[in-house]
Amino acid sequence: MLWGILAIIALAALFGLLLGLASVVFKVESSPVVDQIDALLPQTQCGQCSYAGCRPYAEAIAAGEAPINLCPPGGENTVQALADLLDVEVLPLEEEEEAHEGPIVAVIIEELCIGCTLCIQDCPVDAIIGAAKQMHTVIESECTGCELCVPPCPVDCIEMVPIKQTITTWHWPEPQYDVNHTPTGNIFTTIDQLLAENAHP
């Protein structure tokens, strides 16, 4: 009887020790939740969430101070991803007054630019090059379309334009799963359409 109890106790102690050791040795290093949230945000640094940038917003979400639906550039996919990460309910996106269709970039109208450098100072990702009294220009590949450069311009020479879709950026649409719709994503255009309006672009 006594030996039995002792043996069980010894075994329990041994396994306890093993488990304790394993939890130390094989500890999974997970990146802090702020980093994980920050990785999901689109990094436009636009401040539309009312925070100073994506990182501060991530910190606010992690601290439970901000809801997950304040990021218009990220759109619904970001809200979904954040909800998955934090295991919270998906909230409808809080829309600003106007939302743009698709990605946009800033373009400086060169004839109007007076070289005041105000936009350069406000660009969160250093995507504008230029110097005092020299014409400025936007590096398109670096621009996040945050629109922060638009208000400071004294001559209103910055325009936000949608990025043009080309053959290389185009992608297949989601097939329509609808009984009333021919479900081929393949555009089986009818002959009348083919021969009519788009015959000559």
């Binding site: 920050d38 994506c54 990702v125 996040t144």
Partner: peptide, 16 residues
């Protein structure tokens, strides 16, 4: 592509 762009933007923002 979007993730790469976001990473680039983050890098540039942090550098700034």
């Amino acid at each position: 592509r979007e993730r790469n762009k976001a990473n680039l933007a983050r890098e540039r923002h942090e550098f700034r």
